[in-house]
Amino acid sequence: MGKYGIISLGEAREKLINAKKLLAQGVSQATEKQRIKEQGKLNHFSNWLEK
């Protein structure tokens, strides 16, 4: 969600609502963040291979 004071209370509430919606759909934010991170590593490695 972020450190205290960096985002407004309204933004924090909005992030919480979005996180709950994703969780209701069976998508974990932690798992999704890890998947995106791994995809980025894969893209970086494949770009390196193409050179």
Rank of each mutant, 00 (worst) to 15 (best):
M1C: 10
E14N: 14
E11Y: 02
E38H: 06
R13T: 09
L9K: 13
A30R: 10
L9W: 11
L42P: 01
T31A: 14
K15W: 06
L9I: 13
S8E: 03
G40T: 02
G10A: 09
A30E: 14
R35F: 13
A24W: 05
K15A: 04
E38N: 08
Q25M: 08
E50R: 14
G2Q: 01
I7F: 09
L23N: 07
W48C: 02
G2R: 05
A12D: 06
E32T: 12
F45T: 02
Q29F: 15
A12S: 14
A12E: 06
M1Y: 11
A30K: 13
G40Y: 04
K51S: 04
R35N: 09
L16A: 13
S8D: 02
Y4K: 15
W48M: 07
L42H: 03
G2V: 03
A30L: 13
A30P: 05
G40I: 02
N18C: 13
Y4L: 15
K21I: 07
S28I: 02
Q34L: 15
Q29W: 14
G26S: 04
Q29Y: 12
L23E: 07
G2A: 10
I7Q: 00
K21Y: 05
L16C: 12
L23Y: 08
F45N: 02
I36A: 12
F45V: 06
K41L: 10
A19C: 12
A24Y: 01
L16Q: 11
E11M: 02
N43R: 13
R13H: 10
I7V: 11
N47D: 10
K20I: 12
I17W: 11
L22K: 04
V27P: 00
S8I: 04
L9M: 13
Q39P: 00
L42S: 06
Q25V: 01
V27H: 05
K20V: 11
G40E: 01
Q39C: 06
T31G: 11
E11F: 03
G40S: 01
E11C: 03
L16W: 14
I36C: 07
I36N: 08
